[in-house]
Computed example of a mutant assay.
Amino acid sequence: MSNPASFRDQSNWGDGYELAIEVGSTGDVELQTLLSALWPAAGVRGCFGRRDREPDEQDEVSCTVASLTEHGHLLGQVRLPTGQLAICGCRAVRGGDESSDWLDFYIPTGALDKAGIVYWDGRPFFRSAVIDDWLVGIATETFKQAPFSLGLVGWMVSGGADASTLAGELPKKRDMGYLLSRGGVLHYGAANT
C-alpha cells in the first residue's frame, strides 16, 4: 500500500492544497513570527529541507526563515483529519517592494490522493470541506500567537487576494476560503461558488 507520509515517493508530491497567509510586510521578523506559530498549530512532526530522503535519513533543520530561504521549503509530516499521517510543507512567497510576503502551508495533492481525501469532483476547481475546515482550525490557532490580516484556503491560493483591497469585507462570491481579521477577530468565509 502506498504511504502518503513518504518523502521519497515522488508521487506524493504535486500542487498544494494550502493555507496561505498574507504576512503584511516583507520583513523576516514578521515571517518568522508566523512560521513559529504555524508549525506547532498544525502539529507538524519534524522540520526537514530535503524531499528525496525520508525523515529518519536526514538531519532536521531549524524552523526558521533562514532554513526556509536555504531550502526553498520546509517539510514535515502531519496528521490529517482522517487520522492518516501525510507529508506537508511550507514555503514563503516573497513580494518584494510592491507587495507583502505570503507564508504557504500545504499538503501536496499526491499525498491527499493516497490518503483518500477527495478534493476534486470534475468541476474546474479543487475543494475539500474536510481539509478546508482543518486548515481553518490551524489558521485560528496560528492567529492566537501571530495575528494576521488575511488567510486564504484552497488549491494554490497564495496571492489570490490581498487584505488592503478587501478593506475588511469578505467577498460575497468566494472561489476559495477567506480568513479576514476585523477588530482583532478572525472571520471565516467558506468558498461558496
Rank of each mutant, 00 (worst) to 15 (best):
D101S: 11
C63R: 09
Y106K: 00
A86T: 03
H73E: 14
L103G: 00
P40M: 02
G72Y: 06
D104N: 14
F105K: 02
C47Q: 01
E98S: 12
T69G: 12
T33V: 12
L85D: 13
E70T: 14
G83P: 02
V65K: 02
I87E: 07
T64M: 03
R53M: 14
F48C: 08
V61I: 15
C88V: 03
C63D: 05
L68I: 05
D59H: 13
S62W: 05
L74V: 05
C47R: 00
G46W: 02
G72H: 07
T33D: 10
D52A: 11
C63W: 01
T33N: 13
L85K: 11
D56N: 15
T33M: 11
T69R: 14
G49Q: 08
R79M: 12
P55I: 10
R91D: 04
L74D: 03
P55C: 10
R53S: 14
D56Y: 13
L34K: 07
Q77E: 13
R79I: 15
L68T: 01
C63E: 09
L35V: 02
T64I: 03
I87G: 06
F48A: 06
R53V: 15
S99E: 15
S67R: 05
S67D: 08
C88R: 00
D104R: 13
E54N: 10
G96Q: 09
V65L: 04
L74F: 05
W102D: 01
G83A: 08
L68Y: 03
G83S: 08
D104Q: 15
W39E: 00
W102S: 04
H71I: 00
A42Y: 02
E60D: 10
D101Y: 06
A41M: 08
L35K: 01
F48V: 01
Q58W: 12
S67P: 06
S99M: 12
S67N: 07
R94T: 09
G43V: 03
L74C: 07
T33W: 04
S62R: 13
G95T: 06
V65H: 03
A37W: 01
G96R: 09
A42E: 02
T69D: 15
L103V: 04
S36K: 07
D101Q: 07
R79K: 15
V44N: 01
G89V: 05
Q84T: 12
Q77K: 13
A41I: 07
D59M: 11
H71C: 05
G96M: 10
T33G: 10
E57R: 13
E60G: 10
R45S: 12
R50C: 12
C63M: 11
W102Q: 06
P40F: 00
R53C: 13
Q77W: 07
T69K: 13
S100D: 12
V78D: 02
A41W: 05
F48S: 03
R51I: 14
P81G: 09
G43A: 08
S99Q: 14
V93F: 11
F105M: 04
G49T: 06
H73F: 15
S62H: 12
G89A: 06
